[in-house]
Design a protein around this nucleic acid. Structure first.
Length: 352
DNA sequence: AAAACGTGGAC
DNA sequence: TGTCCAAGTTT
C-alpha cells in the first residue's frame, strides 16, 4: 500500500523532476552518478526558509568562487559574509564557514555520511541532516520541511495546527519513506509540494497522489495545513549615519556576530527602538534625508532615518572605519543597509 | 519552548 | 499595502 504510493511518486518524479544546479536528475542518478556532498550541503543551507529562485545566483557565485569545501574553509570571513549579503538569515553564513572549517580541518575534507554525524555540525539541524544523508549518501532518512508538512497534512487530512502537528506529520512522512531511492524520494515529495501541492490552489487534478489523498476527497486540501495565528509585528525606529570621505571612502562598521545582521557590514547608528537617540559616529555637518528607509524583518517593521555628511581626509571616526572606494561593494551590504545607501548615494552625487 | 533570525515574490 | 510564505536552526 504505502510502497505502491511511494512508487507512484517516484514515477512522477522520473518524468517531472525540476532541474537544479545542485541536483543530479533521476536519469543520471539511475546511471550511478552521485551528487557532490559539498554542493548538496551548500544548497540545502541556502534553501533553509529561502526560495529556489532566490538561491540560484548565490549558489553559482559561491561554487564558482569556492569550488570545494577546502576552498570555502580557507576563505576570509568578510568575503563569505559579503557573498551571502542579501540572502538573509546571516547566522547561516557564519555557521556555513564554521562547518566548512570543521569538515576541512577535523574530518579530512569529507562530510559525514550519516544523519547523526551531520547533525553534529554547525548549521545542520534535523531537516538538513536528513536531506544530505538521503540525497548525497542514499540513506533512507525522512526529510520534513514545509513542503512535506503540507503534503502529509493533506494526504491524511490532519487539521491539528502547526507547529503542534509537527510530530504527527513527521511520523506519517517516516511511514511512507521507501528503502529504495531515498534521495530521489525526498526530492520528489518536495518537488510535489513546490509544484502541485502548493499552499494556495493546489493542482489536485494532476497530482500523482490524487487517489489516496484524504483532504482532496474531503474538499479541505486548500485549507491545510492549519497554522497557529501569528503575532503582530511592532514598528521600530532607528538612525543610520552615512559618511563619505573626500576620497570616496565610506564609514562602515562590522556588526557583532550575535544578533540581528550579525557579522555583516553596516552603517553606524542608533539602537532600534521606539525613540532612538542620536549617535553620530564622528563630528560632522550631518543632514537628515527627507525620505526614510523602510524595511520589514521577521518580527518587526523598521523605519530608518538616514543622516549623511561629507568629511575631510583628517576625519577620525569614533565608531567603524573608512572603507576605501575601491574596496566597497554595495552588494556586500545586507538589504536594509543597501536601502539606506540607495537613498544616500544620489545625494553625494548631487553635492560632490 | 517560545522567540529570534532576512528577504523578495505572489496575490 | 499587507499578509503569507519559502528545502529551518539556534538559544
Amino acid at each position: 500500500m504505502t510502497q505502491a504510493q511511494a512508487a507512484d511518486l517516484l514515477n512522477w518524479y522520473d518524468r517531472h523532476a525540476r532541474v537544479m544546479p545542485w541536483r543530479v536528475g533521476p536519469q543520471d542518478r539511475a546511471q550511478g552518478v552521485r551528487p557532490d556532498p559539498y554542493r548538496v550541503w551548500l544548497s540545502e543551507v541556502m534553501l533553509q526558509q529561502t526560495t529556489v529562485a532566490a538561491v540560484r545566483d548565490y549558489f553559482h557565485r559561491f561554487t564558482a568562487r569556492w569550488p570545494t569545501v577546502a576552498d570555502l574553509a580557507g576563505a576570509d570571513d568578510a568575503d563569505v559574509m559579503g557573498e551571502w549579503a542579501g540572502l538573509g538569515y546571516y547566522a547561516r553564513a557564519r555557521n556555513l564557514l564554521k562547518c566548512a572549517r570543521v569538515v576541512a580541518h577535523d574530518l579530512g575534507g569529507v562530510f559525514p555520511d550519516t544523519r547523526d554525524g551531520l547533525m553534529a555540525l554547525p548549521g545542520i539541524g534535523p531537516y538538513t541532516a536528513s536531506a544530505i544523508a538521503s540525497i548525497a549518501f542514499n540513506q533512507p532518512e525522512t526529510v520534513v520541511d514545509g513542503n512535506v508538512e503540507r503534503v502529509m497534512a493533506r494526504l491524511y487530512d490532519v487539521h491539528t495546527p502547526l507547529p503542534r502537528a509537527k510530530p504527527e506529520l513527521t511520523a506519517l512522512a517516516a511511514a511512507l519513506t521507501p528503502q529504495n531511492r531515498p534521495g530521489d524520494y525526498a526530492q520528489a515529495v518536495m518537488d510535489l509540494g513546490a509544484t502541485i501541492c502548493t499552499p494556495r490552489s493546489p493542482a489536485c487534478g494532476i497530482c500523482p497522489w490524487r487517489d489516496p489523498c484524504v483532504a482532496r476527497t474531503a474538499g479541505t486540501a486548500a485549507t491545510l495545513p492549519k497554522k497557529e495565528p501569528k503575532k503582530p509585528k511592532p514598528t521600530r525606529h532607528g538612525i543610520v549615519y552615512v559618511a563619505r570621505r573626500d576620497d570616496g571612502a565610506f564609514l562602515l562598521e562590522r556588526r557583532p556576530d550575535k544578533g540581528l545582521l550579525g557579522g555583516m557590514l553596516g552603517w553606524p547608528g542608533s539602537d532600534w527602538n521606539d525613540a532612538p537617540q542620536p549617535a553620530p559616529p564622528l563630528d560632522a555637518d550631518w543632514r537628515e534625508l527627507p525620505a526614510q528607509a523602510l524595511h520589514t524583518f521577521t518580527h518587526f517593521h523598521l523605519r530608518l532615518t538616514v543622516m549623511i555628511a561629507t568629511v575631510g581626509a583628517q576625519a577620525q571616526p569614533q565608531q567603524g572605519a573608512f572603507l576605501p572606494h575601491a574596496t566597497f561593494r554595495p552588494s556586500d551590504l545586507p538589504t536594509v543597509m543597501r536601502k539606506a545607501f540607495d537613498l544616500a548615494r544620489p545625494e553625494f552625487d548631487n553635492t560632490p
